[in-house]
Amino acid sequence: MASSALQAALARRSSPKVTDAAPDDTTLRALLEGAARVADHASLRPWRVIALRGAARERLGRALARAAGAEGDAAAKLAAKPLRAPLLVAVVAVLTPGHPKVPEWEQEASAAGVAHLLSLLLDEAGWGVMWRSGPHTRHPLVAEMHGLAPNERLIGWLYVGGRPSGGRVERRPERLAASRLTTLE
């Protein structure tokens, strides 16, 4: 286990393939307590998460296929995507339109921060995690399947499961900071 947030962040890897094991709701709630500490201007808590397990993943697959207007094999392929992991955690931005201090983009950024921090915490706890979205993330049929209110926007899903034997996929670490940091004085 990592001894610092930096070590955990440097060790994090997306897991495109996972096993059928998944954290239970008690574990998910505990990790979500940590993820809830993201930056949150005016303490709006502009987010919520929805755990999709079992048949809910199948309903999501059907909604994705309908949103794409897919038929036949293409629909079956889209419908199977949510079955890649035993747990999907939908991250939802809960917007307060017209807030005098916090524009909607900032509220969505806070929800995205929850998604990222939760993915880091799940990874550090030993779970395989992949953040996925796609062209139909904001489609009305997908929103309806999740039971979203008019002021809610789906950010994406964390696909969560056990790490396959062999653990994390190690990659040579890229050095990005030097090319992405600008200093103004």
Rank of each mutant, 00 (worst) to 15 (best):
T137G: 04
T26E: 14
A51S: 14
S43T: 08
A35M: 08
V114A: 00
M145W: 05
T137K: 07
R84K: 12
Q107P: 04
A63D: 09
L95C: 03
G126V: 03
H136F: 10
R37S: 08
P97R: 10
V114N: 00
A51V: 12
K101D: 04
A42Q: 14
R138I: 02
R37M: 12
R138W: 04
W47R: 00
E71A: 15
A75I: 15
A115E: 01
L64F: 08
A70E: 13
A36E: 01
T19N: 05
L88E: 01
R132I: 12
H41F: 02
A30N: 12
P97T: 08
A56W: 02
D73C: 03
L121S: 03
A36S: 15
P16K: 15
G54D: 14
P140D: 06
Q107C: 05
A36P: 05
L121M: 06
A65N: 13
R153N: 04
L122C: 01
W127D: 06
V49T: 15
L78M: 13
A85S: 14
V102S: 01
G61I: 11
V114L: 06
D123H: 13
E58L: 13
P150G: 08
R153V: 08
A42N: 07
A93K: 03
A112V: 00
R153C: 04
R138F: 05
R48C: 08
A115Q: 08
P135F: 11
I50G: 00
A93I: 06
A30R: 15
A76L: 14
D20P: 01
R59S: 15
R84Y: 07
A39V: 04
P100C: 09
V38A: 00
E124G: 03
A30L: 13
R48S: 14
G72N: 10
W105F: 13
G134R: 06
G128R: 04
A70L: 14
A63S: 15
E58I: 14
P103Y: 02
V49F: 11
L32D: 09
L121A: 07
V91I: 15
V49W: 02
P150A: 11
G126S: 07
